[in-house]
Design a protein around this nucleic acid. Structure first.
Lengths: 274, 274
DNA sequence: ATACACCTTACCCTAAGGGCAAAGTCAACT
DNA sequence: AGTTGACTTTGCCCTTAGGGTAAGGTGTAT
């Protein structure tokens, strides 16, 4: 049996951590002296602790690790395999995200060295005033979090397209989303997925036309906030005000685009003169 | 002026976050109605907020971002550039670390599919009982955290080598570290860097020989905990006990190794029969 | 017997907000 | 003018994975 200090030294885990793991039931010492409460770990538990550290290095949370340890025995292998595979996919995604931001950082640094400030990209966004016409749209309105946006895009638009197909409707434009939430909430925003169609059926409504400030984004959706900011700036500077929910029209299918540049998105801010 | 909800919607930042940023002074609303405390943000602040989000996406902490925003104006560009470069290096390192764990995960998954449990690598570690001889070592003893270990290795051993060179001493072996801490502490462990030399001068001492359990690791230092666990297991099973601080001998220079396999490390556990 | 190394629990702290509640305020609609 | 509902305010507790420190109990070597 090893005292907590000995066990700590061999495993490379602090005694504080070991006490915490005992508290949350991740790894309980094999023996506790009932008189003084001293913890004693068995040699067998060294392997266990190393396994926990391995899983921790794979970015599993302690809760996930506990779940893995508890499914031990009967079908543990299979379950562990699929869990590992899933986590590997997640890590691959964070890795891709890191590569993306590395590219963006490098581009920002290059610009800075040329004396171009980082947020100057805002100045290159063009805004125009347009008059839109009233459209009949087939819609679905949902609370959806920005994290699930990519999934939602696929899910809700494919449902709408399915309806169009089964009911033999005629679509008159590309998919769009209307943002109704009065403020941004990471947990979920009141989002309307819509496609303009010809027929007036159940599940359609009028999207009223009118004066709009409009901007066209050719690039990744991650640049949308900049477009929104630019539009808002324009609206204020020109003496207008936002009167209804802004909306985006997805002119191209992002799944078909090979380069970010090929993604075309129109952003509309319905406005009126102040 | 925009209310907090409007500002939130345009920027894609929750009102809760905006209030928090106000509290910590990261971005304060341009105007606060003194009667009711309502926050109002200017259009100008949109760009600011987007900049903050950009820096956040680069994994800067809010504290770091605040520092960046405060150095604004005079030499901001230069400072920002170097800060970004430093952060880029950090991100590159996390990316490399992720690639490493992806490889390890894949290997673990492959093994699992073959029915080989993940921690079975422990079983392949061999332990032998040896009798070491007393050595005269030139040493430096330091509290050093495991994070700084790579740096420490370079720093302290190069100091020892420097001393050997300037005082024209004769070294009799490769570098080694002796771990004196009774337990593992991430903040710092009592670590002795040493090199065996022939001459007895100031700064040398005897490392007493004796019975040792010994294991040789050919691979990355990240596998050391497994070696420690195996050694401990062996020591207990064979009826020995650890009587002094364990130590590692770095047979090869890790900077010269191209592959992890080329790194050879001997681990010694001084023991005696119970 | 004493010193000191080791162990225990208990309490507070971290970063970046999320969730919820109670209460105040604003704008729009009767 | 009054009411409703939408919007805002502050305040408090919660999250992960432990770190730091204190006060007090215990083990072992000298």
């Amino acid at each position: 049996m090893l005292s907590i200090g000995e066990f700590s030294k061999i495993c490379g885990v602090s005694t504080k951590t070991l006490r915490y793991y005992d508290e949350i039931g991740l790894i309980n010492p094999d023996e506790i002296n009932p008189e003084n409460g001293y913890r004693y770990y068995s040699i067998r538990q060294l392997k266990n602790m190393l396994f926990i550290n391995r899983l921790k290095s794979y970015h599993f949370s302690l809760e996930e690790i506990k779940a893995i340890l508890e499914l031990e025995e009967d079908q543990s292998e299979e379950k562990l395999c699929s869990t590992l595979n899933y986590k590997r996919k997640e890590i691959q995604e964070t890795l891709n995200a890191l590569e993306f931001i590395l590219k963006q950082m490098s581009s920002d640094i290059l610009n800075l060295e040329k004396g171009i400030p980082i947020m100057s990209c805002l100045d290159n966004i063009e805004v125009q005033l347009v008059e839109t016409e009233t459209m009949n749209i087939l819609y679905m309105r949902q609370m959806i979090s920005s994290d699930d946006y990519v999934v939602g895009y696929g899910k809700y638009f494919s449902r709408l397209f399915e309806k169009i197909a089964t009911e033999k409707l005629t679509f008159l434009g590309t998919p769009m989303t209307i943002y109704h939430s009065p403020e941004y909430n990471p947990a979920g925003n009141d989002t309307e997925f819509a496609i303009p169609i010809e027929e007036t059926v159940k599940g359609t409504r009028d999207l009223h036309g009118g004066l709009c400030a409009k901007s066209v984004l050719k690039g990744s959706y991650s640049e949308l906030p900049a477009v929104y900011a630019k539009l808002m700036e324009w609206v204020e500077n020109e003496g207008y005000e936002l009167v209804k929910s802004p909306y985006e029209v997805y002119v191209t299918d992002p799944n078909q685009a090979t380069e970010p540049k090929d993604i075309v998105t129109e952003v509309y801010f319905p406005v009126k003169k102040k």
